Simulated assay, not measured.
Amino acid sequence: MSRPERIVVQQSFPPPRPTTNPYIVMLLDALLATPGLEVRTFSWRSALLGRYDVFHAHWPEILVAGHSPLKALVRQGLTVLLLLRLAVTRTPIVRSMHNLHLPQGISRRERAILRWFDRRTALRIGLNPTTLFPPGAAHETILHGDYREWFAAYPHPGREAGRIGYFGLIRRYKGVEELLEVFAGLPGDGLRLTVAGRPSSEELAESVRALAARDPRIAVRLAFLEDADIADLVGRSQLIALPYRDMHNSGGVLAALSLDRPVLVPGNETTEALAREVGEQWVLRYDELTPEVLGAAIARAEEIAADDRPDLSARSWADAGRRHLDAYARTFTLRNPRRPPEGA
């Protein structure tokens, strides 16, 4: 099958809402502005009955999840129908690798469907240069874009000496409880820690509140953050601490860097590469989070000039639409390997 003049791509995300991940909103804007590409946001009717050339998945686990066992079962059935439809019509799946592993705590049925989804994927898109792909799998790397333009409309307050911030969804693997315990062991009356974001469970919320109550220097706000709240929290912070236990792709890291604040993150291949890209002083890494490590990171953050900025030139959205169009187009060559590449 040859490449159509205009590629129609069905996305796995619905029309954006105020709470939609900014990455998705900016990606959609970039795709809609790309000549030769028609984009459709997700509905089950569109995905199952609509006509399109490529299905682009982001977080496939969302397709099989539901707020109740019955809703989950219905969505899992619909996902099976979708995969059958894609197989019968030979419609390729392109998947952005936001997560490298299956979610924890899912059912055997969900796991089986997601593995089937993975086997049916024709091409994978890595969001950073260290993403590992299955041997022989077709892939492209399109770097996760920055958030500078996204936050440009909001006030950017000056940084406050000794203030550390954490923002974003609060989940067990993000290490917020560990951060609270480590900060409590760090002496200094002039230090402050602000933790803000929506917890994944009431149990976790209670744990965070209990740990924060032990130290008057800690403030918590356990609620969804608007963009203006994030710009304010990050702007006032001298350092953003994001102690995720497993860090590969992080919109929070890029949001902090886009607002010109250094981040403290676990050291791994991904964060080492990011430090080389944007500047070593902006991505501070550790092997084990301790009060001494946290104190040293604050001291290093103090050395950054107020008008200095990380180098995010490789994270521009200007070329993202075309790069995705090229990735979609490549799937037509993959479906028909005897067809020579264009221009050959």
Rank of each mutant, 00 (worst) to 15 (best):
V195Q: 02
G188E: 03
R214F: 08
A138G: 03
I125V: 14
A153I: 12
L204K: 02
S201C: 10
L211Y: 02
L180H: 12
P155F: 10
G185F: 06
V176F: 09
I113S: 09
G136F: 14
R172D: 07
Y173N: 01
T194I: 14
E140W: 04
G158L: 01
A205H: 02
G162R: 00
G190S: 14
S207F: 00
L132P: 00
R159S: 13
P199V: 07
I164E: 06
A153F: 04
F151S: 03
G145V: 13
E206R: 15
A122M: 15
E160I: 06
E160N: 00
L186I: 09
I170A: 11
L191P: 00
H156Q: 12
A112I: 06
E181I: 01
L114H: 01
L143H: 15
I113C: 09
L127A: 03
G158C: 01
G162T: 02
L180G: 13
L114R: 06
L114I: 04
F151H: 04
P199Q: 05
G158P: 00
K174Y: 07
T131Y: 00
P134E: 12
G188D: 03
F133Y: 11
V176L: 10
D118W: 04
P157E: 11
G197L: 00
G188Q: 01
A212T: 15
H139T: 06
A205T: 01
G168N: 08
R111L: 08
H144D: 10
E177L: 15
S201T: 15
P135M: 05
E149Q: 15
F151D: 05
G162Y: 02
E178N: 03
A153N: 05
D146I: 05
H139S: 14
L127T: 02
T141W: 09
G162S: 04
E206F: 08
R171T: 11
G126Y: 13
T131S: 09
G158R: 04
R198A: 13
A112F: 10
A196E: 11
L114E: 04
N128T: 14
N128P: 04
E203S: 05
P187E: 15
G158T: 01
R119L: 09
R171K: 10
R171F: 03
A184K: 07
L143M: 13
F183S: 01
A210T: 14
A184M: 07
R148I: 15
R148L: 15
E202K: 04
R111S: 15
A184R: 12
T131M: 06
Y166D: 02
G175R: 10
A184V: 06
R209W: 13
G197C: 04
G185H: 07
E181Y: 00
N128C: 14
F167C: 00
G185C: 02
I164K: 08
G145N: 10
A184P: 03
P199D: 05
I142G: 08
T131P: 01
T131G: 02
T131K: 00
S200G: 12
L143I: 15
A161S: 15
G145K: 11
L211P: 00
R148S: 14
H156T: 09
R214H: 11
G158H: 02
L204E: 03
P157S: 12
G145R: 09
G175I: 10
W150D: 13
A213P: 08
A137V: 13
E202M: 03
L132E: 13
E160W: 01
A152Q: 10
P216A: 12
Y154E: 14
A122E: 12
A138W: 05
